[in-house]
Amino acid sequence: GAKVLACPLNSCPVAPASRSSQEMWESFSQCFTPAVKEVVEFAKSIPGFQTLSQHDQVMLLKSGTFQVLMVRFCSLFDPKERTVTFLNGQTYSLASLRALGMGSLLDAMFDFSEKLGSLGLEPDEMALFMAVVLVSADRSGIVEVGAVEQLQENLIKALRSLITSRRPDDSTLFPKLLLRLPDLRTLNNQHSDKLLAFRIDP
């Protein structure tokens, strides 16, 4: 009868049945709000992001925040051991994660973490990749699409030159990295379905 809200950002994914869904939600909200604010602060640091209209900044952040967080917290997922360490420091085995109701989305996250992790990016390369992820997010709702496209192009160019300057004889890494963008879109869609399915009991 326990109540579950299985998300690696949630410091208390399991609560007694006596706890209301509203309380579960509010305590979860206190966990993910700082993470969202961190993404916003990161976005402000992206050269050119703040030249976009405020409306477009909000739209990009709305559609891209989960994907940036997925990259940001990718290391919480251990694809070899099939464990996830939540932000509360607790590591959950696959059996426990399944018991928490985590299914195909979790499998896709393990897969993504393995692929991204295998590229062995440096922290600054990962940060620039996160910037590309954000500006590559879904553009429905964006007004000045041209400005976003230009920003994306500039950031992709910067990412390519950073990676190729460090690994001149590895021409496969950059394309492999860009292939992670559609993976993130798929994860985002799966995660959105989960969000939609989440209801707060009256």
Partner: peptide, 27 residues
């Protein structure tokens, strides 16, 4: 098709975090 982000109140958090910068600039 509902807006999944609204389930989290995401837009509100984002606007406040962005506005935080606007208020600083105006001061």
């Amino acid at each position: 098709f509902g807006d999944p982000a609204s389930n989290l109140g995401l837009e509100d958090i984002i606007r406040k975090a962005l506005m935080g910068n606007l208020e600083e600039r105006q001061e």
